[in-house]
């Protein structure tokens, strides 16, 4: 199995084989994190830059640990300390960082397409760690990894993605990925946050969470951002909770062994009831754990580590 892409900009243009190749590589990476000495020399001498233009705890630390466990050097570019605040353009910032000869740049940006823009003038491998409302490929990959771990398959599963679909990069990457792997994807949310055009992405669209829950295998809840309410997307958090919170009552309509996922950070008792988030069906923390294995796999496949060195 190979991985022939220079960058990881999104899921949309990956093949099923590409995805499986990352998931399978992650299987062997997962084991490293359980060792006494959680480190292999695979990417020794490689330099990776974490370039985050948006706040992030999970993704940034996950990439950092992934790089460190493969022995790559990692530079964390923090927004506050950078010259971005002095009005430097993204292009100039990246060109300056590239002059320091990194091998990969991991970029998180508030604007859709920013990693694609960077990839047009960069030599380094670009990894998209979330761009605007567009894609968050490593999140979708770690979600798929977690589903496969729990359910032993993805094909044919009924997977609900619930919440602010319109603005969610996690939703888009998951839609692309789960479709490629043959899942039955159902999107759920209020119409302004889930316009009917989403049906053209080959998924089912529902505005009735209770009905959609029936026979679900996976319930993936998305964070609701309060500022959306101010922009007339829905009337109130109270009403949102009434219609779209994953409560215990709703959970009962899903399959008894259904799993609950959330990319974080959680708004407890907004999109997910706190007892549900902490229930045995919740795999939210497993997602976080698997994130490291997925990001190790991505770094390894892009930076061209050899499997021989893996066993070292």
């Amino acid at each position: 199995m190979g991985f022939s892409h220079k960058h990881l900009l999104g899921i949309q243009h990956l093949s099923e084989d590409d995805i499986l190749s990352i998931l399978d590589t992650a299987e062997s990476m997962a084991e490293i994190s359980t060792r006494e000495v959680k480190k292999v020399p695979t990417l020794r001498g490689k330099t990776v830059i974490n370039l985050f233009f948006e706040p992030s705890t999970r993704t940034r630390s996950s990439f950092e640990l992934a790089a460190k466990r493969l022995s790559a050097d990692i530079l964390n570019f923090s927004l506050q300390a950078s010259s971005v605040t002095k009005g430097e353009s993204l292009r100039d910032t990246v060109l300056n960082l590239e002059a320091m000869n990194p091998d990969a740049i991991i970029i998180r940006h508030a604007y859709s397409g920013a990693p694609h823009f960077v990839s047009t003038f960069c030599r380094s491998h670009i990894i998209n760690a979330g761009d605007g409302s567009h894609e968050h490929p490593t999140q979708a990959l770690l979600d798929a990894f977690t589903i496969r771990q729990e359910k032993k398959k993805i094909k044919g599963l009924k997977i609900l993605i619930v919440g602010d679909i319109l603005h969610s990069r996690v939703a888009r990457s998951n839609i692309f990925l789960l479709n490629k792997l043959g899942a039955h994807v159902v999107l759920v949310g209020p119409p302004p946050l889930l316009p009917s055009i989403f049906t053209s992405l080959n998924v089912e669209v529902s505005h009735d969470f209770d009905k959609a829950c029936i026979d679900a295998d996976v319930l993936m809840m998305l964070r609701i951002q309060r500022e959306r309410q101010e922009k007339y997307f829905f009337p109130s958090i109270r009403e949102y909770r009434e219609l779209y919170t994953l409560s215990k009552k709703r959970l009962k309509k899903a399959k008894p062994d259904a799993i609950i996922m959330h990319p974080g950070p959680l708004n407890r008792d907004v999109e997910i009831a706190t007892d549900v988030a902490d229930s045995v069906q919740s795999v939210i923390l497993k997602q976080v754990e698997n994130g490291i294995a997925i990001r190790m796999a991505v770094l390894y496949l892009l930076l061209g580590g050899k499997s021989r060195e893996m066993s070292d």
């Binding site: 949309q12 605007g132 409302s133 567009h134 990069r169």
Partner: peptide
């Protein structure tokens, strides 16, 4: 138009642009 940057439709949905 709000904070839109491209035509609203299938492709804005795909590209994640407002």
């Amino acid at each position: 138009s709000a904070n839109g940057v491209m035509h609203e439709g299938f492709y804005s949905t795909l590209f994640g642009l407002n």
